[in-house]
Amino acid sequence: MSVFSRITMTVALALGVLFAPAYAEEITVKQGDLTLRGELTLAEGKTAKDGVILMLHGTLAHNKMEIMQSLSDLLKDKGYNTLRANLSYAIDKRASDMLDCTIEHRHQHADAVAELETWMQWLKQQGATKVALLGHSRGGNQVAWYAAEKDSELLTKVITVAPATADPEKAAKEYAERYGKPLADIVAEAKKLVDAGKGDSVMEVPGFVYCEKAKATAKAVLGYYQDDARLNTPSLLPKIKKPMLIVMGSEDEVVADLPAKLEGVKQDNLSVATVDGADHFFLDLYADELVDKVTEFVAW
């Protein structure tokens, strides 16, 4: 059975509700054995047919974190519909909370690409005629990864907000300093298990993403830590054919190397903007300026 045919709407939301005045509603869709959660917000007088901005949060976070909620509210006020996806991290019906570090981590960075495709197919079912993808931080990288490798006839614009960068040497140095063990040894152990067909084996590692003394499968370790150029957002840009906007904060210390990595990158379909004074999360009035840049770019 295809992904398209498996997707089901499991909330009590009749199709006619999509034509109601402004509202926000939790949506669930099936992806294999998982139920994914999201929140659809329709601007007043708008329906899915008017277009939807599909939004993705950052690392181990959720769809109701402050930046996601603020952007959705501001976009609604400007007449834009949004769908805020909540990544499952391989957990059925995962709550809208920061991910619990004590779980056995079975998720991989690229899982988000498949989940974005599921949401794109759901939007198509609802009659959406155009979709803009917007991702923040790691979500920005995952949105770019989707646009580079999956794309969609519905996808018209790609927006990455402070998208993640990657530098293997820097990552290895920071891991060793923080966790006291060479990252290369952990990755080699994980690869050995995966190559032996034991990718679901759980490893005890000193650190996994933001989590200390974590338990993660070998496939999960490789999914986040193997040397893969696609984890560095600028490396994905040449493969993206749709119009793109990258927005940076001038005071962002999380992806401080992003401006340098974008120097010399020239593509006719790429626009780059900076919000002066904003840090990685574009709080308060910086969110307003960010939304102004997004809506000017999307221009529906």
Rank of each mutant, 00 (worst) to 15 (best):
S2D: 14
F4C: 00
F4K: 10
T8S: 07
M9V: 10
V11E: 15
A12I: 03
F19G: 11
F19S: 13
F19C: 07
P21Q: 10
Y23G: 04
Y23K: 04
E25P: 00
I27A: 05
K30T: 13
Q31S: 13
Q31I: 04
G32D: 06
D33G: 02
D33W: 02
L34C: 08
R37G: 01
E39R: 11
G45D: 01
A48M: 08
D50M: 05
I53V: 15
I53Q: 08
M55C: 10
H57N: 13
T59V: 13
L60W: 07
L60K: 10
H62W: 12
H62A: 09
E66D: 14
I67D: 00
L74N: 09
R84S: 12
Y89L: 15
Y89H: 14
Y89S: 10
D92L: 01
D97S: 11
D100L: 04
H105G: 08
H105F: 12
R106P: 05
H107R: 00
H109N: 14
H109Y: 11
A112C: 08
E117Y: 03
M120D: 03
L123S: 07
T129R: 14
K130I: 01
A132V: 03
L134V: 12
G135E: 05
R138C: 01
N141W: 01
W145R: 13
E149V: 01
S152Y: 10
E153G: 14
T160F: 00
A162N: 02
P163M: 10
A164H: 09
P168N: 04
A172T: 03
E174A: 13
A176Q: 14
R178F: 05
P182V: 05
P182T: 03
I186H: 04
V187W: 09
E189H: 04
V194N: 11
D195Q: 13
A196D: 12
S201G: 00
S201R: 08
G207R: 08
V209M: 11
Y210T: 12
Y210V: 12
T217D: 11
A218Q: 09
A220S: 15
V221L: 11
A229I: 09
N232S: 15
P234E: 06
L236N: 09
L237E: 06
K241G: 12
L245T: 04
L245P: 03
I246A: 03
V247N: 07
M248D: 04
V255Y: 08
D257I: 02
D257G: 03
K261P: 01
K261A: 14
E263Q: 15
G264W: 09
G264C: 07
V265M: 10
Q267F: 13
Q267P: 00
L270D: 06
V272K: 14
V272T: 13
T274Q: 02
T274V: 14
D276G: 02
D276M: 08
G277D: 07
H280N: 10
F281E: 11
L283T: 06
L283V: 01
Y286H: 15
E289F: 02
E296P: 00
V298K: 05
